[in-house]
Simulated scan of single mutants.
Amino acid sequence: MKINVKYFASVREAVGTGQEVLELPENASTVGAVRSLLVSRGGVWEEALGEQRALRMACKQVMCGPETAVSEGAEVAFFPPVTGG
């Protein structure tokens, strides 16, 4: 299954791209599994997306948790939490 992955703010800066099309293996069917797959690339991917990082995630432009299922053509996004006032 192919999905579109988008990276925003400091995540985009760390990994060096704003988006990519990703072919998922059969066992990667949730947003959390997509994150783990990206982390397994190592290096800057592990630093930017690893479990030690507080990240927000969205699937189909709706905020979600790691258990959210992904489907063919879905857009999955990763970005840091936003603070401000």
Results as ranks from 00 to 15, higher is better:
N27Y: 07
E51D: 15
S40P: 02
T17C: 12
E67G: 08
V15K: 06
F79R: 01
S40I: 04
G18P: 09
G32N: 02
L24A: 01
L22M: 03
Q61G: 00
A9K: 02
E67H: 14
G65Q: 13
N4T: 14
T30E: 00
A69Y: 06
M57W: 12
T17N: 01
V11D: 07
E47F: 12
L24H: 04
V44E: 11
A58V: 07
A69R: 13
S71R: 11
A58W: 04
C64R: 08
C64T: 15
V39G: 00
A54N: 12
E51L: 14
V82F: 09
A77Y: 10
A54M: 11
M63L: 15
E13A: 15
P66S: 12
V11H: 11
K60I: 02
L49D: 01
T68Y: 03
F78D: 09
L49V: 08
M57A: 09
P81M: 09
V11L: 09
G43Y: 00
E23A: 06
G32V: 00
A33K: 11
F79Q: 02
V21Q: 15
K60N: 15
Q52F: 11
W45D: 03
Y7H: 06
T68D: 09
G50C: 10
V11W: 09
G18L: 01
V70N: 03
V15Q: 07
P81K: 10
E13Q: 14
G50I: 05
R35A: 02
G18E: 01
L22D: 04
A77G: 12
E26Y: 02
A14Q: 11
Q52K: 15
E46K: 13
L55C: 11
A14M: 13
P66Y: 05
G18D: 07
Q61A: 08
S40E: 05
G73R: 10
Q61T: 04
E51I: 12
G42N: 04
V44N: 12
E20T: 04
R56Y: 10
E75S: 12
E75R: 13
V62R: 14
T17W: 00
T83S: 15
E75L: 14
V5S: 05
G16T: 07
G50F: 12
E26D: 14
G65T: 14
A58T: 13
A9W: 06
Q19N: 10
S36A: 14
V44T: 14
P25Y: 01
L55H: 04
A9C: 08
W45M: 08
A48P: 09
V44W: 06
G50N: 13
L24Y: 00
R12I: 08
V82M: 11
V34K: 02
E47P: 04
M63G: 03
A58S: 15
E13L: 14
V39A: 03
M63F: 13
V39N: 02
A14H: 06
L38Y: 03
E47N: 14
R56Q: 12
I3V: 13
E46H: 07
E72H: 12
E13P: 03
M63D: 06
P81V: 05
S36M: 02
E47A: 15
G43N: 11
M63R: 10
P81Y: 10
P25K: 00
K60M: 12
E46I: 00
